[in-house]
């Protein structure tokens, strides 16, 4: 590995180390009154990491490839349901179910991609078709027996490493962080590869890319498959964390929105964009909920969505390249 190669990965390794060291700060954060307890901290962090992973998936096709999907719930949900159903109905081990969930998510991505890209759907047409697919999956999952129908699927609570259920909340935090870390490194690898260069070329100008020998259909199909597989892992982790899925969680529009909002807010088509965006969105959302609760004495449902909306408007108006763009512009001066 040359020094130039190492320099490209150094910021990622530093960020991973910093995140991994975060549990050390938990006692301090709790005593400072920022979190009610260690569990509150870990629940929030794990949720942020799961959303980050889903957003990292979206960012591969949407950020690097310019194929804006509004339906990444189709992949998240497939991963979540596969993880739940394989364990409860087929007795598959949780660790063995995870790669299957990932592969099934990727398969759904490949099929939707094949149908949409072969029909030469781009831009808002592609977005609408993916949205429609996710909705079809949601309705089907709500109606078919194998997914548990409207009642959803409950994964029995059996604490144990073999079941991917941990007593210590830090363990699941590190599991989720491990996946996010791998995808961070994978994204940098992608940026520095031929496939990554061709993917960005497709985003910038498809005709020009074709003239340079880029098989745009193949590139887009690979991207959506990889994108879907990563988001499916996020779904599978969600199942393992909350041990319950139903159609509105797995295939609901909420996750499609989170998956695309985080990279847009954080910095689209960048390695750190999804992570920064997820931290900003969910962190501010939770902060708003807490503040409103203490100010009015009761929870105001949906206030986090108001924060999302405000943040999105502010970012689009003042930082079109996302928060990471702001950081870079500030650091450059």
């Amino acid at each position: 590995m040359s020094s130039g190669t190492f320099a490209a990965y150094r910021p990622i390794l530093i960020a991973i180390a910093a995140l991994a060291a975060l549990p050390l700060a938990v006692p301090m954060l709790v005593s400072a009154g920022l979190f009610a307890g260690a569990n509150t901290f870990y629940n929030l962090m794990i949720f942020i990491l799961i959303i980050t992973l889903a957003a990292q998936g979206w960012n591969i096709a949407g950020g690097y490839g310019g194929q804006f999907s509004f339906g990444h719930a189709a992949f998240f949900g497939t991963g979540a349901y596969a993880q739940a159903v394989l364990q409860t109905r087929y007795g598959v081990n949780a660790w063995a179910a995870l790669p299957v969930a990932m592969a099934l998510g990727g398969l759904v991505g490949a099929v939707i991609g094949l149908l949409a890209f072969r029909a030469r759907l781009r831009g808002s047409y592609f977005a609408l078709v993916t949205l429609a697919f996710a909705e079809v999956f949601r309705i089907l999952a709500n109606a078919t027996p194998i997914t548990g129908g409207a009642a959803g699927t409950l994964v029995p609570l059996r604490i144990g490493f073999g079941q991917m259920q941990f007593e210590a909340p830090a363990a699941f935090f590190y599991l989720a962080l491990g996946f996010v870390a791998v995808v961070l490194l994978l994204n940098r690898l992608l940026e520095r590869s031929r496939f990554g260069a061709w993917l960005v070329a497709v985003r910038e100008n498809e005709d020009a890319a074709r003239a340079l020998g880029v098989d745009t259909l193949t590139v887009k199909l690979k991207a959506i498959t990889l994108s879907a597989a990563v988001t499916a892992v996020a779904g599978a982790l969600y199942t393992q964390k909350f041990l319950y899925v139903d159609a509105n969680i797995a295939y609901g529009a909420w996750i499609s929105v989170e998956a695309l909002l985080a990279p847009i807010v954080g910095g689209i088509g960048t390695v750190f964009g999804p992570l920064i965006g997820a931290v900003a969105l969910i962190g501010l959302g939770e902060a708003a909920k807490t503040l409103i609760h203490s100010a009015f004495g009761s929870a105001v449902p949906g206030v986090d969505l108001v924060v999302y909306g405000l943040l999105l408007i502010v970012v689009i108006a003042f930082a079109p390249r996302g928060l990471i763009g702001l950081l870079r512009a500030g650091g450059g001066r």
């Binding site: 910038e204 100008n205 005709d207 890319a209």
Partner: peptide
């Protein structure tokens, strides 16, 4: 039809 978001070298590298 330049790839506007890329540098000159990255454009040629495609």
């Amino acid at each position: 039809q330049p790839f506007a978001g890329l540098s000159v070298l990255e454009n040629i590298a495609v």
